[in-house]
Design a protein around this nucleic acid. Structure first.
Lengths: 344, 344
DNA sequence: CAAATTAGTTTAATCGTTTAAACTAATAAA
DNA sequence: TTTATTAGTTTAAACGATTAAACTAATTTG
C-alpha cells in the first residue's frame, strides 16, 4: 500500500514548513503569503495528489463534517427514500452521513447513538422509536446538535421536521365524507409514537366534524408481530357482518401493503365494496387493480429540511426549529364518489 | 456543551499516567498492572462515563472501523435491503458503515470514493457503475481493501460477491420452456455492466439449449431515460402483431415494475396472454393480480458475505475471494404451464 | 538614519489516543 | 551483599493536521 501524501511531504519537497502549506491549501493568511511559494505549494500538492487526512483534521478542529442518521429501518422504502434525500442534501454542504437502523428498539437506539457520538458526528438526525424520551433529553443536555425527523415528542422541546399528521388524516376523512362514505374505519399501528397517535386524532376529529359515526370497533390498532395476519383479520371483520364499513384508512405504508394484499385475497372490490386511502407513496401502489388514493408525504422536503435545520443548529446551537409540513391527498379511483359508482 | 471525559481526566482523578489508563482500558499488559489500580481506573472510567474518542484512536492506529458502501441508489429497494444486511453484519463485527449513492455515474462514483477514502474508511464495498474499471484498478494499486458486490468486472481480478446471473436467467428460461412456452422475449437494461449482460447471455444460451426460437426483436434493451414509456412500448410490440410472444422475462426489478404497470394498463392477461418472470423480490409483487414468478436473489447472503470477505481482506490484504451465488426461481401462477391453461 | 511597520515564514503547542522504551523500586538469585 | 530480574508505572514520541505567537529581514516612516 503506497503511503498517502501528507502536509509534511509537500513541505519537504517545496522546502517550507508544514504550517505554510496548511495556510496555502486552506486559503488562510492569503495576503501574507508570497504568490510564487503559494503557487509552488499548490502545484506540488496536485502533483503528489494530496488529499487531506480528515481524521487528523477532525481531531484538531473537532468537526468531522459527518452527520448521523438513525431511522427505524433503512430497508423500509419511506426511510430509504428519506435517507437518499438526506444524503444528497448533506453532500451539497460537503457533509457525509452515517446511517443506522434502530428497529424501533430503544436499547438499540441508545447503542447507535453512542456509536455515532464516539465517531464524533457533528450532529444527529433521529427518527426516534417509542420510549427514547430520556435519550433525547440526554442528548440535549450534552448539547449534541439534534433534529428529530418524521416523529417527535410534543413534551420535549427539540428541533424537528415532521408531517402534520393530524391534518393529513383529517383531510383524508374529509375527502371520504365528501365522496359520500359514511362508515369509515381505520387500521393503525399499536404504538404511542406521536406521529401515529396524531393520525388517529385526525381521524376521530374529522369523523366528528363531518358528522360521521364513530365506532370503537372501526378503529383498530395492530402490533408489529403478526401484522399481516392481524390486518387481514381486521379487514375481514370490517367488511363482513350486517353493517360493513364503506371505507378504510391505512395509517402507515406497512399497514397499507398488508391491507392491500388482504383486500386482494379476500376479493373485496375497491372502491365498490370498500373505498381505500393509503399512507405514503410507493411504486408498489401502481400494481394494485385500482388506482389508489393516498396521502403523500413530502419526503424530499422532509429530508432536505432535516439537514438544513441541523446545519443551522450547528451554527447557532441554542436555536430550535420546529417544522410541520402538510401532507397532500392524492385522490384516485379507490375513493371515487359513491354517487358516480351507484347512479340513482 | 459539557466536555467529554478523556483519558487524561481519568488519569488525573486516579493519579496515574494516561498510558496506564490506556493499557487498562484496552486490556493490554494485563499481567503487568496491579489489580487494584486497574480496578480503580475502570471504576473512574465508568463513573465519568468515559467514551473513547474514536477520531483520536483512528489517527493513531489508522483504523477507523468504518466501511464505505457505494451503491447505485440507496432508495432502490434491492440496494436498501442489501444495505440493511450489510449494516447489520458490519455491526456484528463492531464496524460502522457509510453509505453513498453513485446514481450509476462514474464521476460521482470517483468523487464518493475520494470522500470515503479521505474519511479513512478501512475498506470499500462497491456496486460499481459502468465505466469505473480504471477506478477499481486504481483502488487495487493503492492497496485499498475492496470487495465488489452485485456487479464485477470479469477482466479485473478483484474480490467480489455476486449472483450467478447467467445461471439465474438460464434457469428461468428453462422453466418457461418446460411449462410449454415457445416464444420467449426479454426486456433488459441497455448497459455494459457484466451482471446485466450475463443475464442476456443466460437467456440466449437457454433459448438455444431448449431449442426455442431466437429473434433479435424479442430481446429489447432499454436505457434509463424514459424507461417506463419504452418498456410499455416494447410490451405493446411484443404482444400485438401476428405472432406475439408468449412469455417475457424482466431482467431487473426496475424493468419489472415498469413492465408490470404496462401490462396492467395494456390489459394483457397474465399468464393467459403473456407469462411473466420478474427479477428480484419485492413486496410490491404481492399487489399484482397474478402471483408472479420471479428470480430471488439471496440478498442477505450477498450482504453478509460482502462484509465478511472485506473483513478477511483487511486481515490478509493479498487474498482475493470471488463468490457467485445462485439465484432461486420462485415459480408462481404467472408462468403456469401452458398445458394447464389450454387443456386439449 | 534609527525606529517602526510590514511581509513572509517558522516554531511549537495542541487535539486524544497508542505504545515502545525508559525508569524505579521491590524481589529473587548468585 | 551485590547483581539480576521482575513488577508496576511513567516518559515521550507519534499519528497529521491547525493556528496563535514568534521570528527575521525588508521596507517605510519620522
Amino acid at each position: 500500500m503506497q503511503k498517502k501524501t501528507s502536509l509534511k511531504d509537500i513541505a519537504q519537497v517545496v522546502g517550507v514548513s508544514t504550517a505554510l502549506v496548511s495556510y496555502v491549501l486552506n486559503n488562510k493568511k492569503e495576503n501574507r503569503i508570497s504568490k510564487e511559494v503559494a503557487k509552488r505549494i499548490r502545484q506540488v500538492a496536485k502533483d503528489l495528489n494530496y488529499q487531506p487526512n480528515q481524521i487528523a483534521k477532525s481531531l484538531k478542529t473537532s468537526r468531522t463534517r459527518t452527520l448521523g442518521l438513525i431511522v427505524a429501518d433503512i430497508a423500509n422504502p419511506f426511510f430509504a427514500t428519506l435517507a437518499r434525500y438526506i444524503e444528497d442534501e448533506a453532500d451539497k454542504h460537503n457533509y457525509t452521513v452515517i446511517f443506522a437502523s434502530s428497529d424501533e428498539n430503544p436499547d438499540k437506539c441508545q447503542k447507535l447513538i453512542t456509536t455515532l457520538l464516539n465517531r464524533q458526528v457533528d450532529g444527529l438526525i433521529l427518527a426516534p422509536p417509542a420510549g427514547v424520551e430520556s435519550q433525547v433529553i440526554d442528548l440535549q443536555k450534552k448539547g449534541i446538535p439534534l433534529v428529530l425527523v418524521d416523529r417527535y415528542f410534543p413534551d420535549i422541546r427539540t428541533s424537528y421536521v415532521a408531517l402534520n399528521n393530524f391534518q393529513a388524516m383529517y383531510t383524508a376523512v374529509g375527502h371520504l365524507a365528501k365522496a359520500g362514505y359514511r362508515r369509515v374505519g381505520m387500521i393503525t399501528l399499536d404504538t404511542d409514537l406521536f406521529h401515529i397517535t396524531e393520525r388517529t386524532r385526525g381521524y376521530l376529529a374529522a369523523l366528528q366534524d363531518n358528522h360521521l359515526t364513530t365506532r370503537r370497533s372501526w378503529l383498530k390498532s395492530i402490533g408489529p408481530s403478526n401484522l399481516p395476519a392481524d390486518v387481514a383479520r381486521t379487514l375481514q371483520a370490517f367488511t363482513t357482518g350486517p353493517q360493513p364499513i364503506e371505507a378504510v384508512l391505512f395509517a402507515s405504508n406497512v399497514i397499507a401493503m398488508a391491507g392491500l394484499k388482504a383486500i386482494k385475497s379476500l376479493s373485496v372490490a375497491v372502491p365498490n365494496e370498500l373505498a381505500v386511502v393509503c399512507f405514503d407513496e410507493t411504486d408498489a401502489y401502481g400494481l394494485f387493480d385500482t388506482p389508489l388514493t393516498y396521502i403523500r408525504q413530502p419526503v424530499q422536503e422532509l429530508g432536505q429540511l432535516a439537514v438544513s435545520v441541523l446545519l443551522d443548529t450547528l451554527a447557532i446551537p441554542s436555536q430550535i426549529t420546529q417544522i410541520n409540513l402538510d401532507g397532500q391527498l392524492i385522490g384516485q379511483a379507490s375513493t371515487q364518489p359513491v354517487s358516480i359508482l351507484l347512479p340513482d
